[in-house]
Design a protein around this nucleic acid. Sequence first.
DNA 1: CCATGAACTGAACTTAAGTTCAGTCCATGG
DNA 2: CCATGGACTGAACTTAAGTTCAGTTCATGG
Lengths: 203, 203
Amino acid sequence: MAYNKTEKVLEKQALRRKRIIKAAKEILLEKEEIGKVSVRSIAKRAGIATGTFYLYFADKESLLDMIVKEIYEELLDKIKEARSTYTNNFDKLQASMEVCIRLFLKEKYLAKILLEQFPQLNSTLNTKYADIEADLIRLTKIDLDELIEEGAIPQQDTQVTATAFVGTFRQVILSWVGKGEPEDLELAYQTLMEYNMRGIGRK
Amino acid sequence: MAYNKTEKVLEKQALRRKRIIKAAKEILLEKEEIGKVSVRSIAKRAGIATGTFYLYFADKESLLDMIVKEIYEELLDKIKEARSTYTNNFDKLQASMEVCIRLFLKEKYLAKILLEQFPQLNSTLNTKYADIEADLIRLTKIDLDELIEEGAIPQQDTQVTATAFVGTFRQVILSWVGKGEPEDLELAYQTLMEYNMRGIGRK
DNA sequence: CCATGAACTGAACTTAAGTTCAGTCCATGG
DNA sequence: CCATGGACTGAACTTAAGTTCAGTTCATGG
């Protein structure tokens, strides 16, 4: 005599699921160390009992997993959107980087979670995070390879330069998240972009 | 009637202390996650009882603290030494970076511990690690400021460019530690250095 | 070679986090 | 408005790590 869930219940459950994710993100922001984010604290913040958490997520890792995925997809979507408005490969590359910076600064929690918290994890998740960095490097490399083909930048080991390129952004964004943005953000942003444009040898 | 320790005992204790540090470094290398490095496992590896650990270090954090300090001092010493053989500021900057790369690649454990393991820590230690990165950036910034004063590179926000500079090295070294060095290391190293030299606008 | 005190030991204590589950509450459908 | 089964609860269980300490071993100096 299994009964069917009504729309209302389904909505309530979806909301609860979202609340759990939101609570987790909030706590990830507050805690210095990702290890300190406990299921108990997430449940408490979300206003549910500890056990209820496990009705929504198989385990703690599943939740964190989902959060990484969500954030990264949001980032990729915005990058894709920004790139679509340009045809020139320089512009596309710059647009991608601009999106990263602006998104991470606007939503510092994204930066903190993605650049600070998740790299602290081991196991499956850390691998997943490394994959994201590797992915961004891969995407950058594609752009650089195309620029070389066009003759817009000199021949170079794009694996190395793409890695360096991404490295500058990671380091600079993290420094801004950590100790506050510079007074003149636009100037700083431009400095960074020029650094990399010169770095790849833009003619 | 307190008795005096003989030389033999003092040596044995010094050795034991070193063994504990060595054991900890070894385990730091093996474990993906620094949190998995337990006092028990360190003691076992060092061939002592768990409790004995606490006769040599106040607590686990003291040991890790000491390890960071040791590694960082080793790095700074080598940098200082390498710099002393040059007078030109470009050469000094390049020498510093070359030392970092060569040291981290030669002793991958240093890179893994300093760039991968310690950033995973929270609290005091993480702060200490952040201090090291900040310190390297600070040192780089000094070089850049001098180069600007000499007119060797154009005016720029050296806080940003120094951060970017260090970021490229961190990212590239970590990628090499993670998935193996490139076939032609010299070439890759040169690529990275050129990237940064162009980046800072070397004339 | 013994008395003393320092070094060492590892089991026990403490704390904290992930996970489970018997009992309770609540929505459904008759 | 009840009987049923799913949702929810939070105390209890499990595991694992840091730390302590009573008992044991060892080194010293007489």
